[in-house]
Design a binder for these strands. Structure first.
Lengths: 330, 330
DNA sequence: TTGTATGCGTTATCAA
DNA sequence: TTGATAACGCATACAA
């Protein structure tokens, strides 16, 4: 038998409505009584019944996170961070890795107060009725009915290039996945080109297609790059995994990082610090991203006003040991 | 306002207890009335209130999955499969990626009917009171208070070696991570050795330490292996990632698979079929594993009898294109 | 075969 | 400052 507030009431010698108030830290109950009740509750191992609470409050304090594709480490890290961010709030988070429709059903069943969705806004085919939604993904071109949180990819590339330029680099190459279908990838490449032009380095633009987002794709792309003449003095890697491959390929060919070639990676996650060479990176720090997502959905739940539809987060450049001045000016 | 059974009752012109019975497909209500009620319910867009149901049923039909470490793809695939397996049951699954204690709290709050835990049994420090638990992990040496589901690693290796022996191979090497701390890895190596001995191939035992579980670890280990003389005619890769690296290294050196060297990989996941060379593999198919885990926890919830404490699942060998007869006997 | 009444554990309203 | 009591939406024992 689980213990309820009525059980506590009996033991503490008060009415159960007083117990309820005490448990909710209501100012309507005397300090001494409150303390006594709290003590009894703890002793009896009381655990509130969420279902009962929900039945009267019409609120679950639970937010659902839809994560249909478990894959890349960056997203996994983001999920962990979001989960952590919720701990400081009054909300709990549940996760579904199912297809959007199934996940929606589960969330509806639990009557979550809000939803976070990873991916395209068009993945929400099911009607969300009045339940607040925040999307994390590419804001891109197409209109969305829901607020989107997105990193400012262009600004990330701008910062990456700027950092390298300030160190004295001019021949800065970009290695990443060139995929027309993937708006995120396109935005990164375009950001790189734009930044290079901004620094009048138009003729130094070098884009190498890794043909994929995995570790090995970066690895092979780098091999190809090294065979060409006029080797760049710096490389911008399109993702954590790709940069890992780039770094490894360079190491194997005896190319020193950063003495011979500097690397800046896209994505700003803690794992960057523990790579073979601690990696300088540009991107929205994953904890900031998580904090923003959590904040957004809660705000959307608790305030009636519509919040801005697209929120682009500003990236940070985190300098580590993979970047330094180019060899020429050493 | 959401629609309740009372609303339906009014519209259908019956009492709400009749509605309740009809909705639960009770035989106590006439077929015609039932149909009518169901129709009205559908028209009104009725969605049952889980909280209310739970309050009287003392059951949530929800199972929590504790997954503290989002990392290797094998586990990600397993999670997806478990999630899918639940769809055919009356249960839903929620996922927590938090630390065990936090996850436990969340699950208790939701009053889940049962829990699936990935990892060591000793990760459950919090008292689970009477809530059923099933662990997926290495059964290993230490006693566990909870039932454990585990793959029979030894049998997997036995099947892998046997398959290669039947094809005519004798020089069969093993490339995997040799880690004293990791019971799973040890069991695989020991299984390989045991199998080799069983086939009187004691002197052909070749174990190469990849010093890690990642793609690249398999890649480097293979490079090292190829430099040695008396190259094996077959390799057993210790995991999906490692085998990917092995395959890539061989391809790069112009070694044909399976013409020059055959590969069998540990782990039995669908991704094996879509590798550069579709991979023959040995292990418990991930859908079987998922099915078993789901079945176990449900059984433990629904039946009072204690189920067996350790359940070792039998592996399957799935033959694909990475294995063939050794070059000598072609 | 259908309807009435009760209770699940909690919050919230009102009275004491 | 405390207590009694009515919801919340549903299942179910019991009455009709």
């Amino acid at each position: 038998m689980t213990v309820t507030i009525k059980d506590i009431a009996k033991v503490a010698g008060v009415s159960y409505s007083t117990v309820s108030k005490a448990l909710n830290n209501s100012p309507l109950v005397k300090e001494i009584t409150k303390r006594k009740i709290l003590k009894v509750a703890a002793e009896m191992g009381y655990e509130p019944n969420l279902a009962a609470k929900q039945l009267v409050r019409k609120k679950t304090d639970v937010i659902g996170l839809m994560w249909p594709t478990i894959e890349r480490i960056v997203l996994a890290t983001l999920v962990t961070n979001i989960s952590k961010a919720f701990e400081t709030t009054s909300y709990s988070m549940i996760l579904s890795v199912d297809a959007p429709e199934t996940a929606m059903d589960t969330f509806k069943k639990f009557q979550v107060d809000g939803m976070i969705v990873f991916g395209e806004s068009n993945s929400i085919t099911v009607s969300t009725e009045n339940i607040p939604v925040v999307i994390y993904g590419v804001s891109g071109k197409n209109e969305s009915a829901y607020p989107i949180i997105d990193a400012n990819h262009e600004a990330s590339m701008q910062k990456a290039v700027q950092h390298l330029v300030e160190l004295g680099h001019r021949r800065i190459a970009y290695i990443g996945h060139l995929d027309q279908e993937d708006a995120l990838q396109s935005e990164k490449v375009e950001g790189y080109e734009k930044a290079m032009k901004h620094f009048k380095l138009d003729e130094n633009i070098t884009i190498i297609n890794s043909n994929g987002l995995n570790w090995f794709d970066g690895y092979t792309a780098t091999d190809i790059m090294l065979e060409q003449d006029k080797r760049p003095t710096a490389i911008i890697g399109g993702s954590y995994d790709i940069s890992g491959g780039i770094l490894r390929a360079l190491q194997e060919k005896g190319v020193q990082v950063p003495e011979d070639i500097s690397i800046v990676s896209y994505d700003n996650i803690p794992q960057m610090a523990t790579m073979e060479v601690p990696m300088t990176c540009a991107g929205v720090p994953v904890d900031v991203l998580a904090e923003e997502i959590v904040h957004s959905i809660i705000e959307r739940i608790e305030s009636d006003e519509e919040i801005e539809l697209v929120k682009k987060l500003s990236p940070t450049l985190t300098e580590r040991e993979s970047t330094g001045p180019p060899p020429e000016i050493l």
